[in-house]
Amino acid sequence: MLFLSHTSSARLPTQFGTFDIHVFSDRRNGLEHIALACGEVQRAEAPLVRVHSECLTGDIFGSTRCDCGEQLHHAQRLIQETGHGLILYLKNHEGRGIGLTNKMRAYALQDQGLDTVEANEALGLPVDARSYEAAADMLAFFDIQRIRLLSNNQDKRAALQALGISIAEQVPLLTTPTHENLKYLQTKSHKLGHLIPDL
């Protein structure tokens, strides 16, 4: 691994099933990334993998402004049903990489009528500032080069492929739109090219 050091592991029972949780420390910045592993992922030809960006509001507080928490839980269910797979939980990805403070500033602008892309641009910030080297490093730890990617995001697929990860299949993670997140999902579909049909 180029950037990460594996620091600890334990069994993690969840409401969706039991995973093995692995913690990795990033030598570049001290951040701790997480992998949730189900089954013998090394033996799978192309295991299901969710590369999930940290979202405090959606993952922890159950925000309905986004679909992040719902996608995370849906991925946990699918991986448990399949019997093997990984969730790679990447820190420092809040707000597509702009950080929590700027994400709240963007939320305030969205409350004034801007969409998520326009809000970032109005703040002078990139629409998406994420990178995926940590995900590639975690996959290398598990000796995985080929995956079935749980994602609607075509740019994420391209970024992982650019890091040498072979994508055997892109499996959409579709959620149920709400009044609060419909415009957000439409923006991801129409402006960011996410694979979200019927919006």
Results as ranks from 00 to 15, higher is better:
F3W: 09
L4P: 00
H6K: 14
S9V: 11
A10C: 15
P13R: 12
F16A: 14
F16V: 12
G17Y: 05
T18C: 11
I21Y: 03
H22V: 10
F24W: 01
D26Y: 02
R27K: 15
G30L: 05
E32S: 05
I34S: 00
A35S: 08
A35C: 13
A35M: 05
L36M: 10
A37C: 13
A37M: 12
G39K: 06
V41M: 07
R43W: 08
A44L: 05
A46N: 06
A46W: 03
P47A: 04
P47E: 07
P47V: 06
V51D: 03
S53W: 01
E54C: 06
E54A: 05
C55E: 03
C55L: 04
C55S: 01
T57L: 06
R65A: 07
C66N: 00
G69R: 00
Q71W: 07
H73L: 08
H74G: 10
Q76M: 15
L78T: 09
I79P: 02
Q80H: 14
T82V: 11
T82R: 15
G85W: 01
N92T: 00
L100C: 06
N102V: 04
M104P: 05
R105G: 01
R105V: 06
Q110E: 13
E118M: 04
E118Q: 14
A119S: 05
A122V: 09
A122F: 09
G124F: 03
G124V: 06
L125V: 02
L125K: 02
S131A: 14
S131R: 14
S131G: 12
E133I: 08
A135G: 11
D137E: 12
M138Y: 04
L139S: 02
F141W: 14
R146H: 13
R148A: 02
L149P: 06
L150A: 08
S151E: 02
N152S: 07
D155K: 10
D155S: 13
R157H: 05
A159K: 14
L163A: 08
S166C: 12
Q170I: 04
V171T: 13
L173R: 03
T175D: 03
T175Y: 01
T175V: 14
T176N: 11
H179L: 09
E180F: 13
E180G: 07
N181D: 07
K188T: 11
K191Q: 15
G193Q: 10
G193E: 08
G193V: 11
L195W: 10
I196C: 04
P197D: 07
D198G: 09
